[in-house]
């Protein structure tokens, strides 16, 4: 769990500044690529892999994680001065568990089929290391607004990986995107077959491995971060 990279950001206190000042924009943007929670900080890999067979559940999952990360960051940051240090983990877990319960109930009420597909992985947002990692590394030492932005940024960074992996898996694995067929019939007639491997769990690991390879060969600073 290498959260050091972004923990350095957390040490400096911000003075009075606009809601979307340069620094805040950076807090929002950095996790999308340079400090991506999945591929650089190695947080939240668990669920990043399991829900990526199709794009739609992946998108919903990404949305859920973004909401939970952003609001738990906000809440913890608001009460950060009144949490005793020794029991902070329990306090964090309860706040996160409460938010996840809300997300779960909303999904069950409005998107039942997706909620069935995600099965236990909605509940597992509680132990998703991104949420806890950002609380520990950022929200405990920062003001509410930057914490909120940090949560959104990290949730979206996680979402990017999820959607990229899910896009490739659904395209190659079942020839569709968002459940809509995109591979034309004449290609199948010529002998094209869907790649069954993409539907199996290991494919997600291969794709993330390749993504990390590509990201690190593009940005040499990230090499040997772990």
């Amino acid at each position: 769990m290498s959260t050091e990279t972004s923990a350095s950001l957390a040490t400096q206190e911000t003075k009075k500044e606009g809601l979307l000042s340069k620094k805040n924009i950076q807090i929002l943007r950095d996790p999308l690529d340079d400090t991506n929670p999945v591929t650089v900080q190695i947080l939240g890999v668990c669920s990043a892999l399991a829900v990526t067979v199709q794009v739609k559940p992946a998108l919903i999952m990404a949305l859920g994680v973004t909401v939970v990360t952003a609001f738990s960051n906000l809440i913890i940051s608001l009460i950060r001065n009144s949490i005793p240090n020794r029991i902070r983990i329990i306090v964090q877990l309860i706040v996160v568990a409460m938010l996840v319960t809300i997300v779960d109930q909303v999904l069950k009420a409005y998107l039942f089929d997706v909620s069935k597909k995600l099965s236990v992985f909605v509940g597992l947002i509680i132990t998703n290391c991104i949420v806890m990692g950002r609380l520990e590394a950022f929200a405990l030492a920062q003001k509410p607004w930057p914490s909120f932005l940090d949560g959104i940024g990290n949730g979206l960074g996680y979402g990017i990986i999820l959607v990229v992996v899910a896009f490739v898996r659904e395209l190659l694995g079942s020839g569709s995107v968002f459940g809509i067929k995109v591979v034309p019939q004449w290609l199948y007639d010529m002998g094209y077959v869907n790649n069954g491997l993409m539907m199996l769990p290991p494919a997600a690991l291969f794709l993330i491995g390749i993504y990390i390879w590509w990201q690190r060969s593009r940005n040499k600073n990230l090499i040997n971060a772990s």
């Binding site: 190695i42 291969f206 491995g209 990390i212 390879w213 090499i223 040997n224 971060a225 772990s226």
Partner: peptide, 18 residues
Amino acid sequence: PAPLQGLGIAMIITALMG
């Protein structure tokens, strides 16, 4: 290869084990 060291190769090995 340098960009693949550490996390990248661990992912791919896990996939092969899978």
